[in-house]
Each structure stands twice: as structure tokens, then as C-alpha cells.
């Protein structure tokens, strides 16, 4: 199972951390948001990193999932799990319908279209006050329970969120190594060439768009139940940008890169809080330095560096063996 080595390592880390620090703020609180962000980033990375389709409106799907869960549980009294399924069904349908017209566009035009999608969803959330509670938000969302086991403490949320994150990572790894994953990468390389090789690019693109939307919707439902309160500004344009930053920072076309990016971008502001007024400035400077010195992404860059160092020690070094497809980080 060499292919899933990274996943095992991540699982081990996730299990050990709370055993070592059961009452640490960074483990039980910050790591939970980091895991949530990781779910979103991994989904977005399938779209951006592998298929090369940029999305500046990913927060919209996150918001649709969250609001479906919130509205269906508080106003119609449905149980949270059915609500989650309803959210994914709705998000999946919207993504499927939107995919055809939107994915015909390329480059900047695609970015603009997804941006518009994000803004439209934002406006709908604010304006349909009777349903969503408008800009004041929607409260009283019930907690999740699993076989009579209520997810109400931080530690329980940690377990649930990490489990879902690991599941999503596993699914993403499997998709990438499957036939459709290879089709995605071919698509990223050249759409015309991919079509020449018999790949139905429309189906492939629509598929990955829907999968990314579904994972965002799942994250949204979890978020709604965890916070018990949601308001439109959690799903705005800036959050979409944050997600794109996570993917790019971690290293495009690398699932663990996306996870890594999500963790770095969640933990960094928490750690920089002590600088008070200079927080944002230092944060910006760190991001800039990272992109200047590790343009291929933090995770991918560090991993390649480590590999080179290891090989230099093991002389005589064979030519560096890099798994194909893992390092396609040139285009965005």
C-alpha cells in the first residue's frame, strides 16, 4: 500500500495529537477549523490543481450546504443527517446545471463566471430574509448526533471533523489515481490532446466540478452544526479567495499540499495574534516570502527539497524519481 503511505501518516498524526494534548486549545479548537478548511481545499484542489479549472466562487457551495442544513433542520424539523444529504443533493444539482455553461469558458472568463456565481449566492442569502434570516444570520441549528452519541464537545468535533477529512483525502487520492484522475490531468495538460485521446472532456469537467461542490456542501453542513449559527458573511468572496490561497500555498496538484495549505493558513493567524497591530502585515509578508522562495507551493517545494537532500546523501544518486502527475504545478 505504498500509494496510501501519506494517508496513513496523516491518520497516525490525527490520532496521536489529541492523546498527547487532550485539552490543548490548538488541537481541540484550531485543528477542527483547519480540518474543515482541509476538506474544502482538497475538493477545490481537484478542480484547480488537477483539472486546471480556476474557481473563485467555491464559498458559494459551502454556503449552500450550510444554509440547506440550517434551514431544513430549524424550519422543517428534519434530522441533521437527512439535511446534510439534502444539502449535497441541492448543491450537486446546482453544480451539475451550472457546469455546462460555466465550464465552456476558460482562463479569466471562467474565473469571472465562478466569481459571479459566488456573488449571486451571497446576494440571495442576504435578500431572502424570510428563509435565511438575512444579514443577521440563522441561529438555533441543532447539534449532530451519531448513533445516540451527541457531537457537542470540542474533542468530539475534532474526531468527527478529522474522520471526514481523512475520508475526503482518501476519496481524492483514489479519484486521482483512477481512470478519471488521469483524464483530469490530461485535460490540464491540453484539452485538445485529451480529446484526441478519446477523453470526453465535458463529462470529465462536469464530474470534477460536481465532486468539488459536493465536498464543499458536506463541509458546509458540518460547519452549520458545529457553529449552531451561520450568517452570509462566512460565505463571501473573501472566503473563496482564502480557499484558493490554501490550495496555491500548499502546492497545486497535490492533495496533501492542499491539506498542508489549509493547516498553515488556519494556524498562522492564530499564532500571529500576539503581534496585535502588525498581525496582518506579518501575515502578508510571510505569504509573500513563501511564494517567492517556494513558488511551487509550500508542501510540494519542501518535499522536493527533502528528496534532493536525501538523494545527495545516498551516493551515487540515481536520477530523481518523481511520481508522474504529482508535480504539475506550472499552470493555474
Amino acid at each position: 500500500m505504498k500509494r496510501l503511505r501519506g494517508l496513513f501518516l496523516l491518520t497516525l498524526l490525527v490520532v496521536i495529537l489529541p492523546l498527547l494534548f487532550p485539552d490543548n486549545y490548538y488541537v481541540t479548537v484550531v485543528a477542527v477549523s483547519a480540518a474543515l478548511h482541509a476538506i474544502l481545499a482538497v475538493g477545490l484542489n481537484l478542480l484547480m490543481g488537477y483539472a486546471g479549472l480556476i474557481s473563485l466562487g467555491h464559498a458559494a457551495f459551502f454556503g449552500i450546504g450550510a444554509y440547506t442544513s440550517g434551514i431544513v433542520t430549524t424550519r422543517f424539523g428534519l434530522d441533521p443527517w437527512s439535511a446534510m444529504a439534502a444539502g449535497m443533493l441541492l448543491t450537486g444539482t446546482i453544480a451539475f446545471v451550472m457546469a455546462r455553461p460555466i465550464l465552456r469558458l476558460k482562463g479569466h472568463y471562467l474565473a469571472m463566471a465562478t466569481l459571479g456565481l459566488g456573488i449571486i449566492v451571497q446576494i440571495v442569502l442576504v435578500q431572502t430574509e424570510e428563509l435565511t434570516g438575512g444579514p443577521d444570520g440563522l441561529g438555533g441549528i441543532p447539534p449532530l448526533s451519531l448513533f445516540g452519541w451527541e457531537v457537542d464537545s470540542d474533542l468530539r468535533w475534532y474526531m468527527l471533523m478529522s474522520a471526514v477529512m481523512l475520508l475526503v483525502v482518501w476519496l481524492a487520492l483514489n479519484i486521482i489515481d483512477s481512470r478519471s484522475g488521469r483524464a483530469l490531468r490530461a485535460l490540464h495538460g491540453s484539452e485538445v490532446a485529451a480529446e484526441m485521446m478519446g477523453i470526453d472532456t465535458t463529462v470529465t469537467k462536469t464530474g470534477v466540478f460536481v465532486v468539488a461542490a459536493l465536498s464543499a456542501s458536506l463541509a458546509g453542513s458540518l460547519f452549520a452544526h458545529q457553529q449552531a449559527f451561520i450568517s452570509p458573511d462566512s460565505f463571501n468572496f473573501f472566503f473563496s479567495i482564502e480557499l484558493v490561497t490554501m490550495v496555491v500555498l500548499g502546492g497545486m496538484a497535490s492533495t496533501f499540499g492542499a491539506v498542508f495549505g489549509a493547516f498553515v493558513l488556519t494556524f498562522l493567524p492564530e499564532l500571529l495574534v500576539i503581534f496585535e497591530d502588525y498581525e496582518v502585515m506579518i501575515f502578508g509578508a510571510i505569504l509573500m516570502l513563501m511564494m517567492i522562495f517556494l513558488p511551487q507551493g509550500l508542501f510540494v517545494g519542501l518535499r522536493d527539497l527533502l528528496r534532493r537532500l536525501l538523494q545527495q546523501q545516498r551516493a551515487p544518486a540515481p536520477a530523481p524519481v518523481v511520481p508522474a502527475g504529482e508535480d504539475k504545478h506550472d499552470a493555474a
Binding site: Y25, T28, V29, S33, G137, D154, Q227, F229, S231, D233, S234, F239, E270, V273
Partner: peptide, 15 residues
């Protein structure tokens, strides 16, 4: 931002 507020409130209470 409401989302930041939740994060900081958690920090105030738990950390």
C-alpha cells in the same frame, strides 16, 4: 466578520 468573532470568542474562553 462574524466568523472571526466566533474564532476569537473561542480563543477567549478556551485559551
Amino acid at each position: 466578520k462574524a466568523k472571526e468573532a466566533v474564532g476569537f470568542a473561542k480563543r477567549l474562553i478556551k485559551k
